[in-house]
C-alpha cells in the first residue's frame, strides 16, 4: 500500500544542511498496524506527515497504492488524500467554534456528500463511538479523551483505508489512552483499516503488529 523509496529531508541552515530524515525505505501493506518509535527529534512526525501527504521530502519517491505521489498535482493529491487517509493528532485539533456533530461532519462537506447522507453517516458514527449525548457540545466542554474520540470519529467517518495517528494518546491519562488504543485495534481488526501511529510508549507500540524504530533520521535496525 505504501512504499517509500530513498526518502531524505533536510533544512538548509546557511551552508549547512540539517538532516531530518536520511535515505528511508519503508513498505507497509494494507491491514497492518505499524508503530513508529524513537527519541525526540528522530524524525518520527516528519515521516508520518510525509506519508500523510501534508509535507514534502527533499528527495526520494513515494508510491501510494502504486501511484507516485510527489508527481501528482495538488488537486489530484488532495483527492487521493481525501479518499484514503484520515489523520489523528496528539492535540486533537478540533475546530473550537463547531460542535461535536459539526466537527465530525466537516470532512464530509469537503467530500461533497449530500446532506441526508451526511446526517446518516454522522449519526452512525456517533452511535458507534457512544458519544451521541455529546453531539451538541463544543470541544472545550469535553475531556481530553472525549475530544480524541471525536478526533478519531472525524478521521474515520470518510472510511479511509489508512489512519495516521501522531501520538494520539500523548495528552491523555493511561486509562483514556487504553481506550483509544483499543479503538484502534478494533478498527484494524474488524474493518481492516491500516493504521500507522507515532508513539513514545512501548506499551502503545505493543498494540501494533510491527514497530519501526527511528534514530537520527535513519531506521534503526
Amino acid at each position: 500500500m505504501i512504499r517509500l523509496k530513498d526518502i531524505s529531508k533536510w533544512y538548509s541552515n546557511g551552508s549547512a544542511k540539517a538532516h531530518i530524515l536520511r535515505h528511508i525505505d519503508i513498505e507497509i501493506n494494507e491491514g497492518e498496524f505499524v508503530s513508529i518509535m524513537g527519541p525526540s527529534g528522530s524524525g518520527k512526525s516528519t515521516l508520518l506527515h510525509l506519508m500523510g501527504m501534508i509535507d514534502d521530502p527533499s528527495e526520494g519517491e513515494y508510491f501510494f497504492e502504486g501511484e507516485s505521489v510527489f508527481t501528482l498535482k495538488e488537486k489530484q493529491r488532495s483527492e487521493l488524500y481525501k479518499k484514503h487517509i484520515g489523520f489523528v493528532f496528539q492535540a486533537y485539533h478540533l475546530i473550537d467554534e463547531l460542535t461535536v456533530y459539526e466537527n465530525i461532519e466537516t470532512p464530509l462537506l469537503y467530500h461533497k456528500i449530500s446532506s441526508a447522507e451526511r446526517k446518516a453517516m454522522v449519526a452512525d458514527i456517533l452511535d458507534r463511538f457512544q458519544i451521541v449525548g455529546k453531539k451538541d457540545l463544543f470541544p472545550e466542554q469535553l475531556s481530553g479523551g472525549q475530544q480524541q474520540l471525536v478526533g478519531i470519529a472525524r478521521a474515520v467517518i470518510t472510511k479511509p483505508k489508512l489512519i495516521l495517528a501522531d501520538e494520539p494518546t500523548g495528552n491523555l491519562n493511561s486509562k483514556q489512552g487504553e481506550e483509544i488504543m483499543d479503538l484502534f485495534t478494533r478498527l484494524n481488526k474488524e474493518e481492516g483499516v491500516t493504521i500507522i501511529q507515532v508513539t513514545h510508549s512501548e506499551k502503545n507500540a505493543s498494540y501494533g503488529s510491527r514497530t519501526i524504530n527511528l534514530l537520527d533520521g535513519k531506521i534503526a535496525l
Binding site: 501534508i54 495538488e74 488537486k75 488532495s78 488524500y81 481525501k82 489523520f87 493528532f89 485539533h93 478540533l94 475546530i95 473550537d96 467554534e97 466537516t106 470532512p107 469537503y110 467530500h111 472525524r154 470518510t158
Partner: peptide
C-alpha cells in the same frame, strides 16, 4: 489552527 485542521481533513485552498 482552523485552517490547518480544515486542510488536514481535505479542504482545498
Amino acid at each position: 489552527k482552523e485552517v490547518g485542521i480544515r486542510k488536514a481533513v481535505g479542504s482545498l485552498r
